[in-house]
Every structure is written in structure tokens, then in C-alpha cells.
Nucleic acid binder design. Sequence first.
DNA 1: TTGAAAATGAAAATCAATTTCATTTAGGAT
DNA 2: ATCCTAAATGAAATTGATTTTCATTTTCAA
Lengths: 164, 164
Amino acid sequence: MLQRRIDDHAPPTREAMREAQDIFYRHLKRVGLKHTDQRDAILRTFLETRDHLSTDELFRLVRKKDAKIGFTTVYRTLKLLAECGLASMVPFPDGTTRFEHQFNRRSHHHMVCTECGASVEFFSPEVEKIEEDIGRKYRFDATRHNFQIYGICEDCRKPPRKVV
Amino acid sequence: MLQRRIDDHAPPTREAMREAQDIFYRHLKRVGLKHTDQRDAILRTFLETRDHLSTDELFRLVRKKDAKIGFTTVYRTLKLLAECGLASMVPFPDGTTRFEHQFNRRSHHHMVCTECGASVEFFSPEVEKIEEDIGRKYRFDATRHNFQIYGICEDCRKPPRKVV
DNA sequence: TTGAAAATGAAAATCAATTTCATTTAGGAT
DNA sequence: ATCCTAAATGAAATTGATTTTCATTTTCAA
């Protein structure tokens, strides 16, 4: 499905990149894993994205920079990034699991068009508050949430659909 | 994964069952499909559930009532039920797609334990309001949403985990 | 009653996600 | 700098859920 995307995200500064790498490598050290060029390249590529990427999509981007990096490594690295909080998994209504990076991103949510797949980010402090409140109420240690609103976007609603 | 579930849902009254069937059959008629015993049995079984069921889980329940109904039919019927709004798909963090019936259910959301998979329903009028507001703001015709909070439940947080 | 369109269900195909395994690499110890 | 072991890599195989195919059966309107 087409993944048109509307948001306000800027590419990461060198600062930010460095800081994210620090987080990643501290995590690796903590769990006794090693620093490799592949992991470096994958993190780098990932941080430059703005979209919700499937593993395969990220793999294709990574391959453009280094054709020798395999799918499996991207897959495993994405898991590591999720572990240390740099990536978060977003299960999509089409059944695929997508990732977006969380570094220096405001917490946000998505409005998704069920016709064309366009997604718009939105920000809502109320949602954060609900997360806190509900966590407290049910004595869960709430760590994250997932909020998507589905609907039909203006463009898809408009045309009486000229059939070819 | 274990699907412990905590909610306040009551089994459907005969009334409710009948009304849901009406909705279903009106939908079938509208799109030119036929009324069959299998579809009847599947809808019936589905409405009696309270959980988030995978297609396979519903299939197993249906099979208890009529061993001749196949997986494929359950799969296709679930799709039809989703089309007419009687079922809704909930993409789970473990990657599976689950369904829950929406008939006579208050709109609700889920708090999911990422350790044991336990889920608690919660109700939040604010969430409905956010759906409306955001839909209006971005000129989407908002039809539904998906809100899950992830965290660690009290039980999973507690024990320092006696290893066997 | 009949015939066309649809439904069924077993089996096959698909496709993303995950694991295996032989080989290579990183990095601490020497 | 070299060695050594644990870890990483990546191609290929496996898994497992989902979806499609197709031969047969059923529904339902005329």
C-alpha cells in the first residue's frame, strides 16, 4: 500500500545522531554484544527515515549504502533498537509490523486513511495523560501506547470516482 | 501467548443475537451474497465470545458446534463481519490479527501486559472526543480507532522470579 | 423445478517473520 | 601485535499465519 506521509519531522542533526549511537552502544555493551559496521550503518539509515518502515523497506534503504548487508542483520538490529527504545513497533492494520524511530521525536499518534494509506501525525497531550491515568488505575507500569484513528481522507472522499 | 482477559462483558441476549443477525443478513443482501447455515453458526459462535480471537481460535470454537465447517469459511466470514461493523480487527503486538465483536459493546480500549499478555479493557470518553476532534481538524471522516496501552501488570512486576 | 451465481472446504500458495548453520569478525587477554 | 573465544553475519531453510485456488455443493430467484 502506498505510504504517503505528512508530518513535521526534520532530519537528525549530527549531534542527535551521535547521541542515538551512544544509547545504542551502551545498550550493546550492557547485554554483551559487539559493535559492528553493519549495526552502525543500519542505525544511521534508520534515523534518517521519517516513515513507518517495514523491515524489508529498511533493508532496501540500507542496501543502497552497503549492498553487502543482509536482510537478517537488519531484522535483528531492528529488534535491538526496539529493545533499547530507539525504535518502536507499530502493528499496522494490513498485518505488517512497522517501525519508526523514537529518537528526538515527540510522542505522537496517527490518523490513517483506510482507502489510500495516507497517514498524518498528530500530537495530543491528552493521550499521554490517559496513559498515565489508566496505568495508575489498573496498577500497570505503562511504558508506551499505540493510538491510531482510521478514516477516509478528504481526497478519497471527494471524487465520485471516475471509472476507467 | 496466554490470553487472560478481564472485562465486564455479559453474554448476548436472544434479542441482541437476533439484531446482530439482521445486520449481518442485510449486509449480505446488500452485496449480493447468500444466507448459509455456516455463516449463521459462525456469527452465533462469535457473538458468544468475549475475547480477542484469532481466526484459528474462532475456528476451533465453531468446530465444537459443527465439525464440518472449515477454516476457510470462518476466515471469510470474519472478513464479512468486519465489513459490516460487527467485528473489529485488533492488530496485536505479537503480530497476529485478532477480532472482537462490536455488537452491543461499549467502545473500549485495551491495556495489555507485554509480559503475560493479560489485557484489561478500559473506557474513556476522552478518547472518543479526541477521535472527533482530530478527524475534524484533518478533514478525515473518522470511522474507528485503535488504542492500546502497553505495560507490565502488577503480577509480572512483583516476583523476583523464582527460577526452577 | 431449475440454472446461474455463490459458497464451501481441502489443499496449495503466499508472504512476512524467524531460525539455522557454516563462515567471518570483534575485541579482550596475552 | 597476535591469539582466541564469543558473537555477528548472511544465505538459505523453516515456520506459521493468511490468502487463494479449484472442484464440488448449495442457495435462491425466476
